[in-house]
Every structure is written in structure tokens, then in C-alpha cells.
Nucleic acid binder design. Structure first.
Length: 799
DNA sequence: GCGGCGCTTATACC
DNA sequence: ACCGGTATAAGCGCCGC
């Protein structure tokens, strides 16, 4: 039979000791199908110059190992002309029986004379399959094949529940370039405990197209009609499985569901001694090891939105935390409902009703969020050529690496190996190298500024100067012959430009996602070369990238100065300077002049014009503070960087006041209104009229409590939480305020109170450790000493 | 008991 | 451990007086 097919999920199985890839996807008619393809596992031997390839082949043909009840042997070999790290080499491609034994066979062959390196035995089977056969995630194919019968592959077809299961004889790529719209089902659970394996699942919400349910075993006379009540937890779990399998989604999505919902459900099923038979094979979720376990369900792509958002998407976001609440608010508007969890101990029927609604709403929000970022997930998967499951969990470094791996064959390149423990240790032991240039500003309020910035600076430096592992010669010298890494990066930059332009002409979610994906890949590639875990690690290339970027920005600064402009600030790839009465046209001419002399693909761009800019001094010490400024753009919008306003570990009172003060000063050009604002807040603070919510300080607990050498206020707060029976864990945001205590109380941590604890807020602390430090450097620009002014007011009041 | 300084810690910028 | 270096600044920890 023949049909059109898009792969959504990949895995593999063994039959008679051989490997087969199994892809689950949809046909163009919307049928969920399984396509089985055979795979010939293989790796490479890179030969030394002048080695006797035929002799080596003769020797290795005999290699055979027995392991885990399997026999693996060398089935065939090919002698090929390939490239390895950019150099022409003779190589032997060694085909073996089973992918699982690649490493063992490579070890068995050993470091024989004539063999320079053994490579590509450390790439996953699915990645190798996609790389070699070109059957890529999120692309359309025409598939021809035989329906898999009941007896085939040891009764394989019986164990999975699908419309069709085929063994492919021909898979041909189709020229179809449209976004695939998956069938998404979102879920969320509420439980009595937060620890996996403890407590019970109170309810499970499910939300999809024309589908909304809340499953529970809590009886409630006021339950909404979408609530289904079961006899007990076990019956509820069974129905959950039934509904998911019946709905038959391509994607089952949750928020932090790898870390919570799915493992909790699995443990709850175990506690009830029932299977959680989700998925096509009915085996339920399996968890792959890792820092965070990844929950895999056969035939359904389990997608934890939190993980993709954290590793890929978070850099677009303004949100201070990656909670569903905040992320959803930013991306799809305010949707999440509130629920007071302290009610849980004594719930009325009406409370339960609210809780059901809250639970459902979380699934709705998750569903909407999944749709919102689907174009980004789709594009990432199709650009990086890795399955959805992996692409939504991999780090940026892995994305860069996968992009490279899947594009190496165009360069006839054999892939470099992944570093092992010892090598990682050696790489990490190397100290830091010198990084970016940051200009020390002179504190002051400036009028009429222009800002230039280099587009994708580090990436364009890598491309321009050909900086990579395979082009590195010796001591700061790199080959002139274009390497595959800089070439690929050049292509990434070109594609980013192309799609950005297309998006500008005809905006669409897909084009925006595509251009963003290329931008992110380009931006992550510099860090990749300095990352200890990278196959193509090259500290020298990374150090040279930083050094050459610095040379280029310093020479651009000189040119701008030479044209008669005073430099106000510069950080890494941007330069702010005074327009000096020159009009925009003249400044654009200057930009053009500089650009004409820039090397390679390097490009300076006009970032924006600003009517005012404020720079302050460092606290305590002299000199201008770097990475801290406020600018007013031509449309009247303030751009605030580094100030307490943008730091989440300062209280709301301070942040709001400082941001208003900065905006007032930028708009008025003087400090008069701002000073009034300050006096007003100080007055309110002293009269205890400030709302406690505005005084809460939030700080992340970045490790377990025992891990701290210095016990700061947030650690003290975490200890208090623990004492109150609240679970604390690394990564959580701790909230507290500083209040008055009797007797001892020298240290701030001794004056820490949790938000629900009653105390008088410590006026002195909020004045001297929050408000004044945040504003004094701003007023100092105008020659004012606000500490004296505030003290003066106090004196006046006394008299 | 207190000032000073180094260190630890969190968070930001690019 | 899951991309890099540069930077500010608070508050603890500890020393010396």
C-alpha cells in the first residue's frame, strides 16, 4: 500500500537480533499509522595516512562478540573517501548486526595500528537513522510498503493499537511545506501531596478539541457537568487511561508533567496495583534517566511544555518565573484561575466546585499554550531534524550539536566523538578566557543618543574569521579554507535574515518561529564551542571569537569618536553615543561608512535613537556603573537595564518607586517630580501605610538548605517554611519580609518573616536597605544627597 | 561590640 | 552538567581591635 505520511515519534525494536526503526505519524487523511523501516547499524574507522585499508578490513571482518544473549558481528565494510575534522581521510564504514553493540565492537577492534579514530558509535540509533536515511521529523513522505501481518516481527502488530502498521519498502520525500496541526490533549492533576509516590490524586483534568473532563473520586453535590465522579482513585485512573487512548492524541501535554503529573500518576497506579496502560502498546509511561526524568508514552508524544519553554523559549520571555501562571499571562493573556490551597483541609461542596474549575482551567491554559508555541516546536524539530520528544527536552547546546550532526554529510564529514568523563574534567579545569568589552560610563543625564549594535556579533565573527575546531591550526591561527562549522553557521545566519525579511513582508506564526529558531541557533553557537560537553569543543576558537569581537567593537568606537561623537556606553556588541546635533541622515551615513570597512559578514546596525539616557555611579565606590542604565526612545518608551526595577529579588515598593523615578527623570529632564515621589513613599513607609504585599522580597533557593555556607535571609525564610511544614526544594522562589523583633536582631536573617506571619514591618530596613540604596545614585546625578534630605525632613518635623 | 574586608550568593547584561 | 564571560551588590562570616 502507498500513502502520505509525517513522522511524529520514533523508536526502535530488535527482531532476530537486528534493528528496526518504528515511526508513528499521521497520514494526509488523518489516520494514525506506524511505519517500520529496517536499519543497518554502522560506525567509522578513520584511517591514518598511508594505512593499509584492505588489511585492516581483513582483520576486522573476523570480529564477533556475544553479549546479553546476542551475537553481533561485522556484516560488511566499505572503504570510503571522507573528511574528518576538515581533512581528507580514508575511512572504513563498518556495518554490524546490532546498534547496541557498536561500542563493544569498536572497543574489540581497538586502537590497532593504522586506525586514527573510531567514530559515530556514540550517536543514538534514531539520530543515525534520520541522518543516514533522511526520514525527518515534521516532514512529509510518500511511503510504500506491506501491511504488517499478525505473525510478522514476532507478533508485533498485535501489541499496538493503530489504524495501519506497515513495513516500508520505499520512503520518498515530498515537497510539502505546511505546518502540521497536531491533535493535542492537555492534562493536569491535583493531589494531596507534592512528593511522588505519597498521597493521592484528587482529580485529573483533560482538555482537547470538543473534549473537557474533570475526573475525581471526591463526591460533590455541586459538581459541574464536565466532572465525572468515580468510586475511588483506582477507577478514576483507569478512566483517565481510557479517555486518553480513546481521544488518540498526537501530543499529550502538561506543564512540568515530566517532573510531576506523569510520574505521580504512574506511582498512584502502582499504589493501587493497577497498570497505567497509556499508549499504543499499553505499557504505560517509561522514564528515561537524566537530571529530570522524561516520560515517554508509546505512540503518543508526551510533551512537557515547561521543559521546552525553559531551554529554548524562556529567553524571549519577560516573566520572572516560569510558572504556568506567569508564562500563560505573558503569552496568551490572563487566564489561570485562583484557588486558595489552605482550604484543602476542610473543603465545602462549593470549594470543591471551585477546585474542579481551577483544575480544568489549568488544562485549558496548557492546551492554549501548547497551540501558541506549537509553531516554534514544529520549526525547531524540523530545523534540528530531531524527533519532537527530544527537541522539546534538549538544551540549546544539544540543539546546536544536533544541527551539526544532521548536516555533516553534505561535507562528507565523519562526526567527532562525544567527550568522556576524563576529557570533560580536563576541559572544565581550564580557567576562563577573556571575554567581552564593557565601557565604563560617566554618570549623568544625557540628551540625544544614538545606539549601534552588531547583528549576531559572535556568530558573524566565527564565520568571518573561520573559527572552529576543524580550522584551528595553532596559537590564535585558523585556516583560511572554510570549515564546516563556520560554513553551517553562515547558512544559519543567512536563513535567519531571509525568514526575518519574509516575516516582515507577510507575518505568520510559522515564519516568526522559523526566523527565531535560526536566531537562537546562531546565538548559541559561540557558547557551544566553549562548552565542555561539546563534540566540537574548541576553547581556542571561543577565546578568539571573544577577542576578535572586542577588536572590532573597539575599532568601531574609534571611528565613531573620530566622527566627533562622545561615547556614552558600550557593552559587548552595542555602542551608545551622543548625536552632537547631527541629524539621523548623517548618523546613518556614519553607519554606512563603518560598515563598508568591516571585515567579512560583520555588520553594524542602527539599534535606535534615544532622546535621553541616564547613567549612575557604582554604589559606595566611585566610577560609573556598567550594565545599569535607563534610556527613553523616540516613542517615549523607557528601556531600563540592570536597575533594581528589573531585579526580582527586590521588593515591589522599591521596584515601582525606582521605575517611576527613572521614567519621570527621563521625561522631565530633571529630578523635581521624582523627588516628590520619593518623599511621598518615605512618608507612607514611616506611617506604616505601605501594603505588606509591596514589601515582600522574593529570592530563589538555588540549592538544598544544607548546601549553604552563608545563611542569607532567604535561607532563613526557607528554614521557617520547613518548620511550618511547607516542603522546600532547590529551585523554588522563597518569599519573606523584614520585620521588627525584640532583643537580638542584628542580622537581617533574624528579622525575616514569612508573608503569612504577623509582624510590624521594619521601617529602618525598608528605608536604608531598600528605598534609599535604590534611588540615591539616581539623585546623586543631580548633586542631591537624598539621605541628608530625608534626614532633614525628619529634623523639620521634630521642630 | 563594632568596623572592615573577603567571601558567598543572587541576579542581571549581552 | 546540559551555551559563554562581565558586572553589581547585599549580607554573612570572621578577623582584629
Amino acid at each position: 500500500m502507498k500513502f502520505e505520511f509525517i513522522p511524529l515519534d520514533y523508536d526502535y525494536f530488535d527482531f532476530k537480533g537486528r534493528n528496526y526503526v518504528r515511526m508513528i505519524g499521521r497520514t494526509d487523511k488523518g489516520k494514525k499509522v506506524c511505519v517500520v523501516d529496517d536499519y543497518e547499524p554502522n560506525f567509522y574507522l578513520v584511517l591514518e595516512n598511508g594505512a593499509d585499508a584492505k588489511k585492516i578490513v581483513k582483520n576486522i571482518r573476523k570480529v564477533r562478540i556475544e553479549k546479553a544473549g546476542r551475537v553481533s558481528e561485522v556484516l560488511k565494510t566499505e572503504i570510503l573517501d571522507k573528511n574528518y575534522l576538515g581533512k581528507k581521510v580514508k575511512a572504513i564504514r563498518v556495518f554490524v548486526t546490532n546498534h547496541k553493540d557498536l561500542q563493544a565492537i569498536a572497543t574489540e577492534i581497538g586502537e590497532v595500528k593504522g586506525i586514527l579514530a573510531r567514530r559515530e558509535f556514540d550517536i543514538s540509533l534514531v539520530t543515525k537513522y534520520i541522518k543516514e536515511r533522511g526520514v525527518e521529523s515534521m516532514k512529509w513522505y510518500s511511503v510504500e510498503g506491506e501491511i504488517i501481518g499478525e505473525e510478522d516481527f514476532g507478533g508485533f502488530a498485535n501489541s499496538i493499537d493503530l489504524d495501519v502498521c506497515v513495513s516500508a519498502s520505499k520512503i520518498k520525500s515530498l515537497e510539502k511545506n505546511k505546518v502540521f496541526e497536531p491533535k493535542i490533549l492537555a492534562y493536569d492533576i491535583e493531589t494531596t501531596e507534592v512528593e511522588i509516590g505519597k498521597g493521592e490524586v484528587l482529580m485529573i483534568s483533560l482538555y482537547g478539541e470538543n473534549f473537557k473532563k474533570v475526573l475525581t473520586w471526591k463526591k460533590c453535590s455541586k459538581a459541574q457537568n464536565y466532572v465525572e465522579t468515580f468510586r475511588d482513585e483506582s477507577k478514576m485512573l483507569e478512566k483517565f487511561v481510557e479517555y486518553v487512548n480513546e481521544y488518540d492524541p498526537d501530543v499529550l501535554t502538561g506543564y512540568f508533567s515530566d517532573g510531576f503529573d506523569l510520574p505521580y500518576l504512574k506511582a498512584a497506579a502502582q499504589n493501587n496495583k493497577i497498570p497505567l496502560s497509556l499508549g499504543l502498546d499499553g505499557k504505560g509511561p517509561s522514564f528515561t534517566r537524566g537530571r529530570i526524568p522524561s516520560g515517554k508514552i508509546s505512540g503518543i508524544v508526551h510533551l512537557d511544555l515547561y521543559r521546552f519553554i525553559r531551554s529554548v523559549f524562556s529567553q524571549y520571555l519577560q516573566s520572572e518565573t516560569l510558572s504556568l501562571n506567569e508564562v500563560a499571562k505573558e503569552l496568551i493573556g490572563d487566564q489561570k484561575e485562583d484557588f486558595d490551597f489552605s482550604k484543602l483541609s476542610k473543603m465545602t461542596d462549593s470549594d470543591w466546585k471551585d477546585f474542579f474549575s481551577y483544575n480544568l482551567q489549568d488544562a485549558v491554559v496548557t492546551y492554549d499554550l501548547a497551540h501558541k508555541i506549537w509553531p516554534d516546536i514544529f520549526e525547531f524539530s524540523s530545523i534540528v531534524k530531531e524527533p519532537l520528544f527530544d527537541v522539546t527536552r534538549d538544551s540549546m547546546a544539544t540543539h546546536v550539536e544536533n544541527y551539526i550532526l544532521h548536516n555533516l554529510d553534505r561535507f562528507d564529514e565523519i562526526a567527532e566523538k562525544r567527550p568522556l568523563g576524563q576529557e570533560i574534567g580536563e576541559r572544565r579545569a581550564k580557567g576562563k578566557y577573556e571575554g567581552a568589552f564593557v565601557f565604563e560610563p560617566v554618570p549623568g543625564l544625557y540628551d540625544d543618543l544614538a545606539m549601534f549594535d552588531f547583528t549576531s556579533m559572535y556568530a558573524s565573527v566565527i564565520v568571518t574569521y573561520n573559527l572552529s575546531k576543524s580550522t584551528y591550526l595553532r596559537k590564535d591561527r585558523f585556516s583560511k579554507k572554510a570549515g564546516f562549522f563556520p560554513t553551517m553557521l553562515g547558512e544559519i545566519i543567512d536563513k535567519r535574515k531571509k525568514h526575518k525579511k519574509e516575516y516582515a513582508n507577510e507575518p505568520s506564526g510559522m515564519l516568526k518561529a522559523r526566523s527565531n529558531a535560526y536566531k537562537l541557533l546562531a546565538n548559541a553557537s559561540y557558547g557551544y564551542q566553549a562548552y565542555f560537553g561539546a563534540r566540537y569543543y574548541c576553547r581556542e576558537a571561543a577565546a578568539a571569537t571573544a577577542r576578535l569581537a572586542k577588536e572590532n567593537i573597539l575599532s568601531a568606537i574609534k571611528r565613531i569618536e573620530k566622527a566627533g561623537h562622545k561615547i556614552i556606553y558600550s557593552d559587548t556588541d552595542s555602542i551608545a553615543f551622543l548625536s552632537e546635533g547631527k541629524n539621523r541622515k548623517k548618523i546613518l551615513k556614519l553607519l554606512e561608512d563603518i560598515n563598508s570597512k568591516l571585515p567579512g559578514i560583520m555588520e553594524l546596525d542602527l539599534e535606535d535613537f534615544y532622546s535621553r539616557g541616564l547613567f549612575v555611579s557604582k554604589r559606595g565606590k566611585g566610577g560609573g556603573a556598567k550594565k545599569k542604565y535607563a534610556l527613553l526612545d523616540s516613542s517615549g518608551k523607557a528601556k531600563i537595564r540592570g536597575f533594581e526595577t528589573v531585579r526580582r529579588d527586590w521588593c515591589g515598593l522599591t521596584r515601582n518607586l525606582q521605575s517611576k523615578i527613572l521614567e519621570d527623570i527621563l521625561e522631565d529632564g530633571n529630578e523635581k517630580a521624582a523627588l516628590k515621589l520619593l518623599k511621598n513613599v518615605v512618608w507612607k513607609l514611616k506611617k506604616r501605610e505601605v501594603d505588606l504585599n509591596d514589601l515582600i522580597i522574593r529570592t530563589q533557593l538555588r540549592r538544598a538548605i544544607e548546601g549553604y555556607i552563608a545563611e542569607g535571609p532567604h535561607v532563613a525564610a526557607a528554614k521557617k517554611m520547613e518548620a511550618a511544614g511547607i516542603k522546600v526544594s532547590a529551585g523554588m522562589l522563597v518569599s519573606y519580609y523584614v520585620g521588627e523583633v525584640n532583643g537580638k536582631g542584628k542580622r537581617i536573617r533574624d528579622r525575616v518573616f514569612l508573608p503569612n506571619e504577623k509582624a510590624n514591618y521594619d521601617i529602618d530596613y525598608y528605608l536604608n536597605n531598600q528605598i534609599l540604596p535604590a534611588v540615591e545614585n539616581i539623585f546623586e546625578v543631580f548633586g542631591l544627597n537624598v539621605r541628608e534630605i530625608i534626614d532633614g525632613e525628619k529634623q523639620e518635623k521634630l521642630f
